[in-house]
Amino acid sequence: MHADPRQPFFNATAKYDSSRTRFSVPALLEDRLAERLRRTALDVFEVLGCAGLARVDFFVPADGEPVVNEINTFPGFTPASQFPRMFAAAGMSYAEVVDTLIRTAVARG
């Protein structure tokens, strides 16, 4: 993600209203780094005892050593949000994601 350079922070304007903010979904990463981030995200999700959906955000500094920034246990889920775009890049439609979340919740009881 490259935020709008005119915005001092990654604020609502940069996130939703700026044509200068660029999201690359999937992220443009080397396969090895992408796999490391995927594994780490799953580990964070499991260690924290999460269920359902969450998004684990990272910083990847120039030295390449990833740092977990946060886990968002209720990421934006509107069609304009990034979370559904991530699932779409993985081959799941918005309806399929919602259906999966509902089925998983029902199965958990």
Rank of each mutant, 00 (worst) to 15 (best):
E70V: 14
V97C: 03
L53F: 07
S81P: 07
V44R: 01
T104D: 14
G52E: 05
R22N: 05
G76L: 07
R36W: 02
I102C: 00
L53V: 12
M92T: 07
D99M: 01
H2N: 10
P75A: 09
G52P: 01
A88F: 04
A90P: 02
M1Q: 13
R55G: 06
R20H: 12
A89L: 11
G52D: 04
Y16D: 10
A89C: 11
F77G: 01
T21M: 01
L33A: 02
V44N: 01
N72Y: 07
A12D: 15
F45H: 12
P26V: 14
R39E: 11
R108D: 10
E96H: 14
P8L: 13
D31A: 10
T40F: 03
A14H: 02
R108P: 02
A54H: 06
F10P: 00
P26D: 07
F59I: 13
Q82D: 11
P26T: 12
S81H: 10
L29F: 05
I102M: 02
T13S: 12
A51R: 13
E30T: 13
V60I: 11
V98H: 00
P84W: 01
F74K: 09
L29N: 03
S19Y: 04
V44T: 09
A41S: 10
G64T: 11
I71E: 00
F87N: 02
P61F: 14
G64W: 08
C50N: 09
P84R: 02
R6P: 00
F83V: 11
D31S: 12
I71R: 01
L42I: 09
P66Q: 13
T21E: 01
V25K: 00
P84K: 03
D57L: 13
G91H: 14
T78D: 06
H2Y: 09
V106Y: 06
E30W: 02
M92P: 00
A27V: 03
L29R: 06
G91V: 15
G49K: 05
P26E: 06
E46R: 13
E30Q: 14
Q7V: 02
A12N: 14
